[in-house]
Design a protein around this nucleic acid. Sequence first.
DNA 1: AATAGACGCAACCGCAGGTGC
DNA 2: GGCACCTGCGGTTGCGTCTAT
Length: 353
Amino acid sequence: MRKPEQISSAGEKNSNNNNKLRKGLWSPEEDDKLMNYMLNNGQGCWSDVARNAGLQRCGKSCRLRWINYLRPDLKRGAFSPQEEELIIHLHSLLGNRWSQIAARLPGRTDNEIKNFWNSTVKKRLKNMTSSSTPSPNTSDSSFELKDNSSNMQEATRGLNIIPCRQLETNAIFSTYNLHDSSPTSIQSNTAALNNHMNLRGPLPAMFDHHGALNNIMFGPNGYNNLNPNINPSSSCMSQEIGVHGGDHGLFFGESGVFSGVNISAEAEIFVPPLESISTTEESYKTDQNSYNNIVNNITGIVNCNNNMIKAENLQGHHGVENFFQTELTAGEWDLDDLMKDVSSFPFLDFQIE
DNA sequence: AATAGACGCAACCGCAGGTGC
DNA sequence: GGCACCTGCGGTTGCGTCTAT
């Protein structure tokens, strides 16, 4: 940690008090000042916050302190196994996009997750990969798929295949298709999957009555990438990879809760972005990068049509308009609350402690 | 008990993107 | 368009604490 009494010699252009800005650890008095100011005035320009709160800190430092430590909605303490699981899964999808991972973990900061990953998970991953001898198949990051049947085998390699009921296919309402199926992308995605399997074991997956691979769970809490405020009372969600014969895309379960990522045999893919917890279709579109990142990761897992993923436009299916008009707000959602219903979630193949 | 090394984590740094003038 | 400034992000640093010897 930094020395608490250190004074930076470098001033900030908008700085106060003769450019003598404190650096290093925050004192309790400084915390009080910042906390009181934020609670009374709310967040504004951080340079103003630093100035008006009487802090000899740069705005950047104030922002960091608030976000990472003082924010009232922060969760303290060690990561729960559920959170850990979720972080691992999200990281396998999102990579080092800590802020996006943090956005899916209520009460946790990107810095916290980053530290957790770098200190704990990364180490464990390293240990596990060094102690295990990966099979040629699983270490091959550029598997070739010859036909649909073998493609299916290949795509589901490493997955626990569990029979499950038919999905609520009549609730399907949207399809998003992939644009990038480059070898590089597939390679990195496959590597991510291999990492996951090395670390956590096979991914749980399920087939529906079509023989379609329907479900890959990301975390025992069944998180998906949508805001559970959509239906806070039944937030048992999953991310799914479906391999259907049809043009099926985005699934909603009986409760109307979005249930995941679906990839059809036509290689149509939809992954819900967290940022699409947005109120307009326009803002939804601006999140295409996030979309693509996740979607690209999925390609490495299931790429069932000779490594070719069709690229089509976002198509309007039933209900998509309602989806965009839904009042969705990012905010407080309690992980424990979300966990309540998980054990009853039909696609789950594990028990919550 | 003393010491060294490993670990955890708060905080800094540099960069990129957005915005307003 | 150029510039200054703000914000947010990911990578990195370095100090306090823990643990093994």
